[in-house]
Amino acid sequence: LAVAPKITCSMIRPHHLINLCCKNTKTKLMSTSCVQRDLIFPMHTLGGGSIGLLFAAALQKSCGDVTMLLRKHHKPRLSVTSCEKSSTATNYFAPVQVCRPSDRQIITTCDIRAEIIGDVHDPIECLLICTKANDAITALSSIWDRLDRKNAAKVIILSNGALAIRDSIQRHFNDHQDVQIITATTTHGAYTEQSSNTESNISGYCVVHAGEGLTYCTNNKFIDACQKVGWKGGALSEFEMNMMLWKKLAVNCVINPL
């Protein structure tokens, strides 16, 4: 087997660093009509895959006030309760189990509030993107109008390919200056399998936390929330985050050549 070469900062050319610094400056620009608030809860998560479920469950248990944004095909896996405000509306909850890979012992179980994309139109103050990179812009487009621009809504990109997603947001959405675009990365490993919940007809979700890793972000509040879970990581400057994401991209290109 070929051994992946050691990735060093010297592999990133100086003109790349200049370009990164310029792009970081752009992400800080806010419309004068926005009021920037340093809050990440209530949080909405976008992406119903293993990492999205893992982070939603962990943050729900430690901090609460997490809502998953899901597409319509997830409905059969959700539990339903009547909404007090309306006789026709419904509240959805995603039953999630997180277990260990070795013996499948359940680490945590929780019911996470869920919304079907297109059914709810309330403002979103903080959005955690956990989709696949190729699906990020399409998924984000479906809820972009819900972002609370008056309070400079936060969009935290946890997906692989965060730099490309950030650049795509700036190209695709003309009013991206009214939101805070925040990059993050994690080395936690997870995958989904059939839920072991046999007490009802609701299958729910089962996430196997295959490996504990590290989580980094340019937002201190998000890192504080992850540390409350007991996860390790840290807050980085935007320059440090860009360097880390570029090195991660280089390693992925070596391990998974296109």
Rank of each mutant, 00 (worst) to 15 (best):
N91L: 14
T109D: 13
L20Y: 13
K28I: 11
T32L: 08
N91C: 12
K72C: 11
T45H: 01
K61T: 10
L46T: 01
L29I: 05
V3C: 13
T27N: 10
Q97V: 05
D38A: 09
T90K: 12
C21M: 09
C99R: 11
H44A: 14
K75W: 04
P14E: 08
A114V: 02
Q60D: 12
R77G: 00
T8W: 03
R13T: 15
A4L: 14
R104W: 03
R37V: 12
K26M: 11
C110W: 01
A56E: 02
G47M: 00
D38E: 15
K75Q: 12
P5I: 03
M11R: 09
G48V: 00
C83G: 05
C34G: 05
K6G: 12
E115M: 13
S79R: 08
K28M: 13
L59N: 04
K23L: 12
I40R: 11
V98W: 00
A57G: 04
T81H: 14
C34H: 07
D65W: 09
T109L: 12
C63F: 12
V98M: 01
K6H: 10
N24Q: 08
L69N: 01
H73M: 07
P42E: 03
A94E: 10
T81R: 11
D111S: 08
Q36E: 12
M11W: 09
I106G: 06
S79C: 10
C110V: 08
I40H: 07
D38R: 11
V35F: 15
S31V: 12
S50K: 00
L46M: 02
T25C: 08
S31Y: 14
L53C: 14
E115N: 13
A58E: 06
H15F: 10
L46C: 00
L78D: 03
I106T: 09
G49W: 01
K23Y: 11
S50Y: 00
K26C: 06
L59M: 09
S79E: 11
T88G: 06
H73N: 07
L39M: 13
H74R: 10
T88Y: 14
S102D: 12
V35E: 15
V66E: 04
M68K: 02
L69I: 05
T45R: 01
G49R: 00
K6W: 07
F41A: 02
N19V: 13
N24P: 08
M11V: 06
G52C: 01
R100F: 10
A56L: 02
P95R: 01
T81D: 11
C34T: 12
C9E: 09
L20I: 08
H73A: 07
K26N: 04
A94M: 09
K85T: 11
Y92Q: 02
D65P: 07
A114N: 06
M30P: 02
S10Y: 06
M68P: 04
